[in-house]
Design a protein around this nucleic acid. Structure first.
Lengths: 243, 243
DNA sequence: GGGGTTTGAGAACAGTGTTCATCTGAGTGG
DNA sequence: CCACTCAGATGAACACTGTTCTCAAACCCC
């Protein structure tokens, strides 16, 4: 609900005392700590015990506020959305608006290490998130997409964003995991590997080895996004009563 | 390498003896057992210990043939591809061929419970799989896609297929997990939930609640696939020397 | 048949998510 | 000012996990 360094909202504070000597545990503080652990240790090392340690608290204390690890993930997923304002749908600019949504989503996922892995397992059907689904739907329908297309377009987009960022993250982790070599060094190795394949058996891979690897993630994300949006646009029906 | 109920190929059999009293452990048999466990227990309960138990063998025995659980996943991923023949690229039918590839992928993923979850974490860069990447690339370039689009299209498609099937599977598991209710019953509940939202705040969700839920997975898969392929097609350049 | 290598067994280590009975300490009622 | 309550934190425990280690048995080649 609250961003890491925003003040905790009133309803999260204990009811009667403003500042009890020992700050009480809240869902908000647990999620904050979870993000600290996630960013420092990565998804695979994000455990309830480490979150508890981050708060200087026993593991079992967490379970008074959070049903289980999955629910913690849900809360982290919801945190991803706060302050995420979708623009007022504009029929003339729906494509740009859809892209803006995807770009903002990617930026937020990239803000926390391995966040995409958490996001992939979640579906935006919690009450807190329905408004976003609603607004996305509005955006697509206003753009002139037929209902059955609008109904799946949101899914398609978020699957794309999650998948892309997750893969992006996997490469990053892998490059800094084994050996000391940087992302750029590793990229060169991969390019060499592709380029070194026998050209008679892999003519196409050899031919475009550069393109598969050289382009920045930003560029590749943008291109994939454009492909999807173009596909969506191909379904747009002329609005009733338009020239 | 081999499908579950196909005979083990010669190079997987022990070199000299045809049938030693105790059938020796091989990577192939381990992968077979892993699939049995996966289908019976699901991804979350697929553990090295259970695979070993399935084979009537100690856990540690597995580690003589497989470096770690991740490598086991890799082998399962590779198994997914065998006998997967991409057709000879035909410039006139590349869109149908691309779709065929996606459909076949989905069918193979659906053949094993939670298989998409395993597939998502993998990248088809093992030597065994490069021929498939190569052929996919050939297909796309023959279709007239610019190289920088072809270079990412494969990724885009497999991300879509993996993501779709994983989500599909998640719903299935969830519906049979809590309570006894079937997938159809649960679908009705969801539809009701969407339809029961306050129409003033969620006009679009209420309006297309049916469409978001009613359509079959096959239909939704096909539609998403068509959106992507149309997007790709919008990048096709006229081939040099064509009318 | 003996030597050497391969291969499985069993126990152990360090960690996981989750639950439980127990204790503590802050806030209230008398 | 004291006794009491009770939410909320605790520490230990359970049933697992992936992985590694040492050790013994089975196999192959000579």
């Amino acid at each position: 609900m609250t961003q890491p360094d925003m003040p905790t909202p009133p309803w999260e504070r204990t009811r009667r005392r403003a500042a009890p000597s020992r700050v009480p545990l809240t869902r908000g503080r647990i999620v904050d700590a979870a993000f600290v652990v996630l960013d420092r240790e990565g998804f695979d090392r994000l455990s309830m015990r480490r979150v508890a340690a981050e708060l200087g608290v026993a593991v079992s204390a967490l379970y008074a506020h959070v049903d289980n690890k999955d629910e913690l993930f849900e809360l982290m997923y919801e945190r991803l959305f706060d302050g995420f304002d979708l623009p007022e749908p504009d029929p003339e600019r729906w494509q740009e608006q859809v892209k803006g949504f995807a770009r903002e989503s990617r930026a937020r996922l990239l803000a926390h290490r391995d966040m995409a892995r958490i996001s992939m397992g979640q579906m935006p059907f919690g009450p807190e998130l329905l408004p976003y689904v609603e607004k996305m739907l509005a955006l697509l329908r206003v753009g002139g997409l037929p209902d059955h297309v609008a109904a799946i377009a949101g899914d398609l987009l978020s699957t794309y964003v999650d998948g892309f960022v997750a893969e992006e993250g996997a490469w990053k982790e892998r490059s800094q995991g084994e050996g000391v070599r940087s992302w750029d060094e590793m990229r060169d190795e991969i390019k060499e590997y592709f380029a070194s394949l026998p050209p008679d058996r892999f003519p196409n891979m050899v031919a475009i080895a550069d393109l598969m690897v050289d382009e920045s993630n930003d560029y590749r994300f943008e291109l994939g996004l454009d492909i999807i949006v173009r596909g969506l646009a191909s379904y747009v029906e002329p609005r009733p009563g338009e020239s």
